[in-house]
Design a protein around this nucleic acid. Structure first.
Lengths: 188, 188
DNA sequence: TACCTAACCGGATTGACAATCCGTTTCTCG
DNA sequence: CGAGAAACGGATTGTCAATCCGGTTAGGTA
């Protein structure tokens, strides 16, 4: 099952490219019928590769997810615990702005019907972020009383807030500063 | 137009009650066909009263909107500018948690097809909130560089973040503190 | 009360879209 | 090259939003 048939692989790639372009042009609806039309293939083909809109969404989000994992890795390697938190949260936030598909995936809870890739990435992220946050908490840089989950939610909320404005990228640093100042421990 | 015919008024009220119950039970989809079925009336009746899902949504949000206006009024009357901001933001946040319909309305931009009631409430809120925030800015209690719109978005983002967790109401104060600390001026 | 008309009601119908199913075509391996 | 597995395509079915118009009712008037 590891290797798809040649035509299947071609169609899958074409489909992903088509979907990515749709998302890039602001259409996050990812109507599978429409994707089939644009990619010039039958509806059945689309549904075989991605049984649901969500499956397609998760496949699209995969690279952004990988980028965040890189960021989390960096964060955990940095000497200063608080700087680690900054790096982690900035990476998570920036990727959500860069890729709306990723934003939707990361904001929704893990489900059993997620594709394996996504589940694995999510687990790895939880572990890495957990380490970064634990260290910061230990050092007193992080306000007590906020769980890892709280912080995850707050970053997603910040991405949502940015999305309400006309030029999210122009305001990232401002909103990020609000968040960081808000979650910092008093000892900072 | 000020006074509906008796049957029309009755149906409108019944419809609103049905929709409110649907929202309260966690169904925010507000499918107008479904509302008609549950309220025991024809689809046409529903569509005459509320031509679109959004019209119904805005009608539902009206009381919550009024409550926020009250809160904003209070905020503007309080002596301390920063306390005014706290009151304002807490009211805005709490109403979003209490009424998902209101949350959706307040998070989306003003549109021309909004019902007059909503437009009026939105305008009044903008003015009231603007006064509260201007005073706080003047006093240095508010971090510079954040517009009224930014703050509006940040509150909506916080509501969104709370909605990602299982028990929003239990974490309101924690998240609100993060937000307030984040937007406070250094002179606080 | 009896009538008239504007306002309102209801649900059959149309249109758009998601999702499935299966006969046909294409690939791959021996 | 031939057989069988895998993938393709699109007709079809089911669901839901939204419209349209013939039938019904409220409420004013004489």
């Amino acid at each position: 099952m590891t290797s798809l048939r040649a035509d299947a692989a071609r169609n899958r790639a074409l489909l992903l490219a088509t979907a990515r372009q749709a998302v890039a042009s602001g259409d996050l609806s990812l109507q599978l019928n429409e994707m089939a039309r644009r990619a010039g293939m039958g509806v059945g083909t689309v549904y075989r590769h991605f049984p649901t809109r969500r499956a397609l969404l998760e496949a699209l989000a995969e690279p952004a997810f990988a980028a965040v994992l890189d960021g989390a890795q960096n964060a955990s390697l940095h000497d200063d615990p608080w700087t680690g938190v900054e790096i982690l949260l900035r990476a998570l936030l920036l990727q959500q702005l860069a890729d709306p598909a990723f934003a939707e995936v990361i904001a929704s809870p893990a489900t059993d019907d997620a594709i394996p890739q996504t589940t694995a990435q999510r687990d790895e992220f939880t572990a890495l972020a957990g380490a970064v946050l634990a260290r910061a908490r230990q050092s007193g840089a992080l306000r007590p009383g906020l769980t890892d989950e709280d912080l995850h939610h707050l970053v997603c909320g910040t991405a949502f807030a940015l999305g309400l404005g006309p030029t999210p990228l122009a305001r990232v640093e401002a909103y990020l500063r609000v968040l960081l100042d808000g979650i910092a421990g008093k000892a900072e």
